[in-house]
Amino acid sequence: MTDKPLKGPAAYFPSIEKTYGRPVAEWQALVRRRYPAKHMELVAMLKTEHGLGHGHANAIVAQTLAEDKG
């Protein structure tokens, strides 16, 4: 485990897991199943279909897209 604080979208992950009771990997899998949807379409899906707040949904989508980009 690292002593560095989380930065960027990943900084939201502990709060997301605590608030919604599911690991981030599950949320990312939901996002990946909707590819090739656009960023804001994916955010809207997490908000409307799963009740996530905008910041949490955006963090999951941003991190997932960044991981899969390269």
Rank of each mutant, 00 (worst) to 15 (best):
D3M: 12
D3V: 06
D3P: 03
P5D: 13
L6R: 08
L6P: 01
K7W: 01
K7N: 05
G8N: 07
G8Q: 04
P9R: 01
A10Y: 04
A11H: 06
A11C: 03
Y12A: 13
F13I: 03
F13W: 06
P14I: 00
P14D: 02
S15A: 15
S15G: 15
I16G: 05
I16P: 04
E17L: 06
E17R: 02
K18F: 08
T19E: 15
T19Y: 12
Y20T: 02
Y20I: 01
G21D: 09
G21S: 11
R22G: 00
V24D: 09
A25L: 11
E26T: 01
W27D: 05
Q28S: 10
Q28C: 02
A29M: 12
A29T: 14
A29N: 14
A29L: 12
V31T: 04
V31Q: 08
V31C: 06
R32V: 06
R33I: 01
R33G: 05
R33Y: 10
R33Q: 15
R34M: 10
R34G: 07
Y35Q: 09
Y35I: 00
P36T: 04
P36I: 00
P36E: 12
A37T: 01
A37C: 08
K38W: 02
K38T: 10
H39W: 03
H39N: 12
H39P: 03
M40A: 14
M40L: 14
E41P: 11
E41H: 08
E41F: 11
L42P: 06
L42R: 04
L42H: 06
A44I: 12
A44N: 11
M45C: 08
M45A: 14
M45T: 07
L46W: 06
L46S: 05
L46F: 06
T48V: 13
T48I: 14
T48N: 14
E49P: 09
E49S: 13
H50Q: 12
H50A: 09
H50S: 07
G51E: 13
G51T: 06
G53N: 08
G53H: 06
G53K: 08
H54R: 13
H54D: 14
G55A: 11
G55H: 11
H56E: 08
H56A: 04
A57Q: 05
A57S: 09
N58Y: 11
N58H: 12
A59H: 07
I60A: 01
V61T: 04
V61D: 11
V61Y: 09
Q63I: 00
Q63Y: 09
T64D: 13
T64W: 11
T64S: 12
L65D: 04
L65S: 04
A66Y: 09
A66D: 13
A66M: 05
E67P: 04
E67T: 09
E67S: 10
D68N: 12
K69Y: 05
